[in-house]
Amino acid sequence: MQKFIFHNTTKLKLLAFLCTVCTSGSATAHDITDAVLIDRSANCAAYAGSYSATATDVQNAATYAASVVITKEGDTCKISSNAVPNHDFNATGRFATQFSEQNQNFSVPASPVAADNPTPLSLRYDNAVFLNGVKLDLMAAGCYGVGNGNIGCNDMASPYRYDPLGAGKKFGADEHNAHTQPDGTYHYHGNPMALFEQSDAIKASPVIGFAADGFPIFGSFIAGDGQVRLATTSYQLKAGERDGGPGDPYDGTFIDDWEYVDGSGDLDVCNGMVQEGVYGYVVTESYPHVMACFTGKPDPSFQKRRR
């Protein structure tokens, strides 16, 4: 795995995603294939630049060229990509639709603000975009008892909505906790299993992306009390068995199987915390995986197109 260091002319900063190579006065895309990030800057403008990568759809033996462009425009950062990841993918997935390149354009506020009340996640909005240009879309459109359970559950009040990464893993996610949508868009449902050290970290994890409300997303490791450890979510499995519906004990198959228990973990109701004075969401090993709600207001650019 590659690591990149950028030397700022005014001060020394470790930046994994700001290593643009200049030739004849013009910037060329920096290759971030299999890059491991190290920067913890919470300002999206710190990552401005053009990036490229090469990725292979393993099962289909097809290779693609990734393209990501991050620009700062006023109080907003724009992140555009073709949705090709910076790592190989689909070695273990069961994709219902073959991968296809996209034209994705997201905007996030450079100075995010917490709302008076959290905004629930829904099927109307994508949740975030990672710094490799691939989006996060946590919610499944499948519920127990609705059609075949895979699609068509558009009422967010419907009970027993499946967790795509829950017990049974019925949605065919690959080794990066990702799969494709009906239009071929590759997207994550949790930890991308890339972009940051996954084990034996000696420092707190870097920023790996930005949520639709502009707050950063950090990897799983946090620092405190002289140690570096995995952050723990405050969502806990309910005790007992489900009342109605599919029955059976709560095992994480459905997002309804979980409940927020204040203070039971490191993270708040949206799966975020303040680190070094900066609020951000944190990737966790179990539900809600990255975030459970928006602490701020999602930008309209994350609203999904009607298909």
Rank of each mutant, 00 (worst) to 15 (best):
A178Q: 08
A178D: 07
A178G: 13
H179D: 02
H179W: 13
T180S: 05
T180N: 08
T180L: 04
Q181Y: 05
Q181H: 07
P182L: 11
P182N: 14
P182I: 13
P182T: 13
P182W: 10
D183S: 08
D183Y: 05
D183A: 08
D183K: 10
G184Q: 01
T185F: 04
T185Q: 14
Y186V: 09
Y186E: 05
Y186I: 05
H187K: 10
H187L: 11
H187S: 09
H187Y: 14
H187R: 14
H189R: 15
G190D: 12
G190C: 13
N191S: 04
P192Q: 02
P192T: 02
P192A: 01
P192S: 01
M193C: 12
M193F: 12
A194I: 12
A194H: 14
A194C: 14
L195K: 10
L195W: 13
F196T: 15
F196S: 15
F196K: 14
F196D: 15
F196V: 15
E197Y: 06
E197I: 12
E197H: 05
E197Q: 12
E197G: 08
Q198R: 09
S199T: 06
S199K: 07
S199C: 01
S199I: 01
D200F: 15
D200P: 12
D200K: 15
D200Y: 15
A201N: 06
A201P: 04
A201Q: 04
I202S: 10
I202W: 06
K203D: 09
K203P: 01
K203H: 09
K203R: 09
S205Y: 05
S205M: 05
S205G: 07
P206E: 00
P206F: 00
P206H: 00
P206C: 00
P206G: 00
V207L: 03
I208Q: 07
F210C: 02
A211N: 07
A211Y: 04
A211E: 06
A212H: 03
A212L: 05
D213S: 14
D213F: 13
D213V: 13
G214R: 12
G214Q: 12
G214E: 11
F215C: 01
F215L: 02
F215E: 01
F215I: 02
F215R: 03
P216L: 11
P216Q: 13
P216M: 11
P216D: 09
P216A: 11
